[in-house]
Amino acid sequence: YLGILAAFTAMLPAVAGAAVANTVTDPTEYFLTCLHLLVNVGMACKDLFGATKAVATARAMAERVVGLLDALEGSTAPAAVAATGDYTAAVQLASLAVGAPGAAPLLSNLNLFLAHGDRLLVRGPNGAGKSSLLRTLTGIWPPAAGQALISVPTDQVLVLPQRAYMPLDATLKEALLYPDTKADASWSTSDETLSEALAWAGLEQLVPAGCTPSAAPLSAGLSGGEQQRLAAARLYLHKPQLALLDEPTANCEPSFASLLFGLCKERGTTLITISHELRLADLHTHELVLDGEGSYKLHGLQ
């Protein structure tokens, strides 16, 4: 815009001459009108370019979804998650191989037994299969081979992705109780309990003075750390038997990680945590280290 202004300043004599020729009585007003129109054109072009980028992004996302659906439709792999009658195990993986549908497995022959209350930390380099394992356990991808057996009821499993979902135009109550809706029993949760969860997560400042979580709007400007804290507050409220966590405290200070995993230990929540943070090892009972070449090492921590 400074360039536009400089160009118009240089053209001022010509503009003034044109104004006189067109019987415009005030050359300055004519100049400012032209400048205003040109700025509006520039802003419109900027919006147009932005919309073009958004459309391209949406198209790329749609193509990925279509590709995934096509791959799943042609897959003959067994169901990703099956119930098991062995209720001594919260999670049991038998000769499991994981990877994108139709692609070579990133991790093979994984055998794992997690009792109720065990807390597993999964580490490894990028591309080793950590996210693929999580997608398989959540049923997004089928296993390339083997089975994932989970004895915990589906409504007692909570997934916290690395980028916490924040509903649009929602109240704090709707954000805290997600993925539950008004049709679920949890919707009767009192404002007192919701405020307790916010205070536990260090987010009480999100409720304006004189307001309640049921009426307070969810701020669109939450930082990455605040979003992860709010997602952790969902775990506080839902009290799941099994939680699948992907970098749940990457944007939070170490003290909050101790608070979150301390709560899970106190409640006996079974955990599978994906993280690059070595300091989280002390907060888990087992560690699964992927080497990035399809193999792994599993050992106890406590």
Rank of each mutant, 00 (worst) to 15 (best):
residue 3 G to S: 10
residue 3 G to P: 10
residue 7 A to N: 11
residue 9 T to G: 09
residue 15 V to A: 12
residue 16 A to G: 11
residue 24 V to F: 01
residue 27 P to G: 02
residue 28 T to S: 04
residue 28 T to R: 07
residue 29 E to P: 01
residue 30 Y to V: 06
residue 34 C to E: 07
residue 35 L to P: 12
residue 36 H to I: 05
residue 36 H to W: 04
residue 38 L to A: 15
residue 42 G to L: 10
residue 45 C to Q: 13
residue 46 K to G: 07
residue 56 A to W: 05
residue 57 T to N: 07
residue 57 T to Q: 15
residue 59 R to Y: 12
residue 65 V to T: 13
residue 66 V to P: 00
residue 73 E to T: 08
residue 74 G to C: 07
residue 74 G to S: 10
residue 77 A to H: 10
residue 81 V to S: 05
residue 87 Y to C: 02
residue 93 L to K: 01
residue 97 A to K: 02
residue 101 P to N: 05
residue 102 G to A: 06
residue 103 A to L: 10
residue 103 A to I: 02
residue 104 A to R: 13
residue 106 L to H: 08
residue 106 L to R: 12
residue 107 L to S: 04
residue 109 N to A: 11
residue 112 L to Q: 04
residue 115 A to Y: 11
residue 116 H to Y: 13
residue 121 L to P: 01
residue 127 G to A: 12
residue 128 A to N: 11
residue 128 A to W: 07
residue 130 K to D: 00
residue 131 S to M: 11
residue 131 S to H: 04
residue 132 S to P: 01
residue 133 L to P: 00
residue 133 L to W: 02
residue 134 L to Y: 03
residue 137 L to N: 02
residue 138 T to D: 00
residue 138 T to F: 00
residue 141 W to E: 03
residue 142 P to L: 12
residue 142 P to C: 01
residue 149 L to E: 07
residue 152 V to Y: 11
residue 154 T to M: 09
residue 154 T to E: 15
residue 154 T to N: 07
residue 157 V to P: 04
residue 158 L to T: 08
residue 159 V to D: 05
residue 161 P to M: 07
residue 170 A to N: 01
residue 172 L to G: 06
residue 178 Y to W: 13
residue 179 P to I: 10
residue 185 A to F: 03
residue 186 S to W: 01
residue 188 S to D: 09
residue 189 T to N: 08
residue 190 S to R: 01
residue 194 L to I: 09
residue 195 S to T: 15
residue 195 S to Y: 02
residue 197 A to E: 06
residue 204 E to L: 11
residue 205 Q to E: 14
residue 208 P to H: 12
residue 213 P to C: 05
residue 215 A to I: 07
residue 217 P to K: 13
residue 220 A to H: 11
residue 222 L to Y: 08
residue 224 G to K: 09
residue 225 G to C: 11
residue 228 Q to N: 01
residue 230 L to W: 06
residue 232 A to H: 07
residue 236 Y to K: 06
residue 236 Y to L: 02
residue 240 P to G: 09
residue 241 Q to R: 14
residue 245 L to H: 07
residue 246 D to Y: 09
residue 247 E to Y: 12
residue 250 A to D: 09
residue 255 S to N: 09
residue 256 F to S: 08
residue 257 A to Y: 07
residue 261 F to Y: 10
residue 263 L to V: 03
residue 267 R to F: 02
residue 268 G to C: 04
residue 273 T to S: 15
residue 277 E to C: 03
residue 283 L to G: 06
residue 284 H to W: 02
residue 285 T to W: 04
residue 287 E to D: 00
residue 288 L to A: 00
residue 290 L to K: 01
residue 293 E to L: 10
residue 298 L to Q: 05
residue 298 L to C: 00
residue 301 L to C: 06
